[in-house]
């Protein structure tokens, strides 16, 4: 058993090639099934600490499914079954003893469509901290909200509108509000599922800038359909195809000289 595991490790190191940072998330042989249909096939992927990893690939290739494995959001889907091994900070997150709620409180997530709660801007950001009871005093909470909005680059725009509903903001502002909301729970990891797909180019540029700043403090994994975005924001890129991880490596390498023909076809736009 041990031997087998080491073997997979070695294989993986080879595939993950040059790694200058220590990996925070380690996935080994992850299979995902929706009912009888298998969506992911034996994914082995390491995600480095405090860098941006982007997951690219054609629609339906399983990148979002993989992302949702990391904070166990797939548990919400009745028919979804996850097999294999995912470790965060050397802790197996699919171990029966793991408290899923606690796990999710350490991982922020930003969704495809901005989904601010039907509450005020302030309450949106304060939602997580209040929930976990980590902040008890109003002053501390105010400071937390301000800091989170500040880090999401939204404070100057909304500081006079904290009482207004989050849904009254523009699309780009809503998405940054969702990022602020995710930051407010002090996660070590932020997962982003096509965060810019519903936004215009200017709002997209702002989010990308933000991602670049956030990577100093957070481990970010982003699913994206835009190759340019992956190239702009990420240090490492993983290419998925039909539920399999085809190739992973430094972004530059993936886009300049990928090992696999399929990857090259995809990143040059000849396919997908």
């Amino acid at each position: 058993m041990k031997l087998n595991g080491d073997l997979i490790m070695d294989e993986q190191k080879e595939q993950n090639n040059i790694r200058n940072k220590k990996s925070l998330i380690e996935c080994r042989g992850v299979d995902v099934f929706y009912g009888d249909k298998q969506a992911l096939f034996g994914i082995n992927l390491d995600i480095g600490e405090k860098e941006v990893t982007s997951l690219i690939g054609p629609s339906g290739c399983g990148k979002s499914t993989f992302l949702r494995c990391i904070n166990r959001m797939n548990d919400v889907i009745e028919i979804c079954k996850v097999e294999g091994n995912i470790k965060i900070d050397n802790e197996d997150i699919y171990h029966p003893d793991v408290d899923v709620v606690e796990l999710r409180s350490r991982i922020g997530m930003v969704f495809q469509k901005p989904n601010p709660f039907p509450k005020s801007v302030y309450d949106n950001v304060a939602y997580g901290p209040k929930l976990h009871g980590r902040i008890l005093h109003k002053d501390d909470l105010d400071a937390k909200v301000e800091k989170s909005l500040e880090r999401a680059g939204l404070w100057s725009e909304v500081k006079d509108r904290l009482g207004e509903p989050g849904t009254s903001l523009s699309g780009g502002q809503q998405q940054r509000l969702c990022i602020a909301r995710a930051i407010a729970i002090d996660p070590s990891i932020i997962l982003m599922d096509e965060p810019c797909s519903a936004l215009d180019p200017i709002a997209t540029a702002k989010i990308e800038e933000l991602i670049d700043e956030l990577k100093d403090n957070f481990t970010i994994t982003i699913v994206t359909h835009s190759m340019q975005q992956a190239a702009r924001v990420s240090q490492r890129t993983a290419f998925f195809h039909l539920g399999k991880l085809i190739e992973v490596g430094d972004t530059e390498k993936i886009f300049r000289s990928p090992d696999h023909e399929q990857t090259e076809a995809y990143v040059t736009g000849r396919y997908g």
Binding site: M73, V76, M109, Y127
Partner: peptide
Amino acid sequence: PLSLRDGSLALGA
């Protein structure tokens, strides 16, 4: 919307 529910669950609620 499911997205609201997911948003809340993802924050550890």
